[in-house]
Design a protein around this nucleic acid. Structure first.
Ligand code: ZN
Ligand code: ZN
Ligand code: ZN
Ligand code: ZN
Lengths: 143, 143
DNA sequence: TGGTTTTTAATACTCAATATCAATTTCTGG
DNA sequence: CCAGAAATTGATATTGAGTATTAAAAACCA
């Protein structure tokens, strides 16, 4: 648990700055959230219900959105559901996706990231997050 | 209307190859679709209802998905809604999207496009298409 | 034109996510 | 520590985008 001290501190800091309170539910939801790389509200609900049968689904949603505000989580719409990604768990990366076999390759390119900031600044935007997906054919599927 | 002959031909070709029929609704929805760059099903429904009060919302959804199959449209999830982009009518561009007010700014950056090709080549991929979306706050919403 | 197939439109439905609100918990400062 | 103010919870109702259903209408084709 000591590994997660930093994330708990970030949450407490955010709560303090916004007149919000630290509750048992928020602690438990954060503890579970930090164990996985990405999660849906429904998935957390099922996991938490085993130990805490009276946890409310609305509380999960509210708390995950709170984590997004605090910068601990990042919401990502995937299909019909919303995935909440653990920001501290994995480094940022983008995706190369093969349209034939479905292979996914992760990559990161600092220069592209930098140019994105540049473009945003040019239009007066401040970037919160972004999505870059390259669709094409992998080497095997080009034949 | 003669400007859109090409897109109508693409639709007819797709219909012919899939045992589908050309209907008045599909013609009207395509005509309106080609006039805008980004559209939601709800937005088209409101526009079309003025002239054609008995148009069905389900028909809009079905037809926009048909356009995606035919390669005329590209679906893009933003927040809770699905945006349908006009693929054939406009030059390639990417998007800056304000997460507060929904404002969308189009941009194109040759350097980013070139770096994408570079990244893909490094992993043996050949790019067919890509999606780049920068989410953040526009200048007005930063307050 | 008639018959077959597809499509439409109205409606019901699904399901993720949010709003409501009385009861409970947290915090504060005396 | 305790009482009161403020925030939070959880049960439930509601929203809203998108899909399924189905009888009636339209399109196609010979
Ligand atoms: Zn990136
Ligand atoms: Zn492949
Ligand atoms: Zn691009
Ligand atoms: Zn804005």
């Amino acid at each position: 648990m000591s590994r997660n001290l930093k994330e708990f501190a970030v949450l407490k800091d955010h709560l303090g700055k916004h007149q919000l309170k630290l509750t048992r539910q928020r602690e438990r939801i954060l503890a579970l959230f930090l164990k996985t790389e990405h999660v849906t509200a429904e998935h957390m609900y099922r996991s938490l219900s085993k130990r805490d049968p009276h946890i409310g689904l609305a509380t999960i949603y509210r708390t995950l959105n709170l984590f997004c505000d605090a910068g601990l989580a990042q919401a990502r719409h995937f299909g019909a559901q919303t995935q909440y990604d653990n920001v501290s768990h994995k480094r940022h990366h983008d995706h190369l996706i093969c349209t034939t076999c479905g292979k996914i390759v992760e990559f990161e390119n600092c220069e592209i990231e930098r140019l994105q900031e540049e473009v945003a600044a040019k239009h007066g935007f401040v970037i919160q997050t972004h999505k870059l997906e390259l669709y094409g054919l992998c080497s095997r599927c080009q034949r």
